[in-house]
Design a protein around this nucleic acid. Structure first.
Lengths: 168, 168
DNA sequence: TAGCACATGTAATAAGTTACATGATTTT
DNA sequence: AAAATCATGTAACTTATTACATGTGCTA
């Protein structure tokens, strides 16, 4: 597909856990072409290009699938702020946690939408079971962290009510 | 504290969800000093500096605590590979998921260690309840995702056994 | 014909890691 | 005396986003 199309498809399919900008996509496609991993042909419009994996590219792709996935470096601003929670008033901290809870709720709704659209548009596709597994990852995470938000909000309120007991 | 100490303390306290390298720490301390948010004084060693928050710095810090936490852009290589699971054999995919499961188990053990050390070394500290909340976040996430790993591994094995039924 | 979606690409900027260079102090 | 730890700092590099510049082709 074209770089433009690639961008849209990435957003729509794996947007929950991956993203690429045009500034990455276009230069990378050129590099991949230089390495012989993709080939370009004329698109429908003037100046547009349609890329396909070469045989070498497909081989390298499968090779990559077997390489152990590297975990990314996590930077969680909510937790950073929560860590210093005793320097803020409890309302401020609750606001932060509540906002995160809303975010996870929105994620869940989003996942439900994706799942429905996926099943409606691509029923029977061999990739489907794997696509749903990635959605389930997000769901499992969101459900667990909504539970954490609720528990944490309760704890913060308890702390605010009886600050003397909090330190025990 | 000194830049060096800051690096160590960050690793030991909030290392689960935040990290800073020397290449960030030293230039940033200088910038903070230029802005009047921290002040530097002579350390115990020749050439070493000990930084403290100024009153303005402490004010800005509290201000920052109230600003809504921004979620970071997630890039999950495991899910990216899993998404293309139908292009690999099921053993390869299982390996990836199993590796992730090991990672989460290791995280859990790590959190247990942190919690024990925290309670032993800083019992009664007013920050403790908040510190434990950040640990609990990691625990909740890890437990949920270990569950997802188990469920996913089961599904992949089912797919491998009856590929024809998989797509339904 | 105006506006939107399609389409490519580069430059400026941001954010951060790694490696290197250097040296003091403490511990073994 | 050697090794480890404490300590500062810079330069090179990597990775990625955002904004900008430019233009095509369809549709209301």
């Amino acid at each position: 597909m074209s770089g433009y199309e690639l961008h849209r498809v990435i957003d729509e399919s794996i947007g929950n856990f991956w993203s690429e900008s045009f500034g990455q996509i276009y230069p990378t496609l050129k590099q991949l072409q230089a390495k012989g991993l993709v080939s370009a042909s004329e698109g429908a419009r003037l100046g547009s290009k349609v890329y396909s994996l070469t045989e070498l590219g497909r081989f390298r792709f499968r090779e990559w699938l077997g390489l152990p996935a590297q975990p990314q470096v996590v930077r969680n601003e909510l937790l950073l702020k929560l860590f210093f929670g005793n320097h803020a008033d409890s309302e401020t901290v609750c606001q932060q946690v509540t906002q995160e809870r809303h975010r996870f709720e929105a994620d869940l709704a989003h996942y439900a939408g994706i799942e429905a659209r996926l099943k409606a548009d691509y029923g029977g596709h061999p990739g489907m079971p794997y696509w749903l597994m990635t959605v389930n990852y997000g769901k499992a995470e969101a459900v667990a962290l909504i539970g954490w938000c609720d528990e944490t909000l309760k704890q913060i309120k308890t702390l605010a009510a009886k600050p003397a007991e909090a330190v025990r």
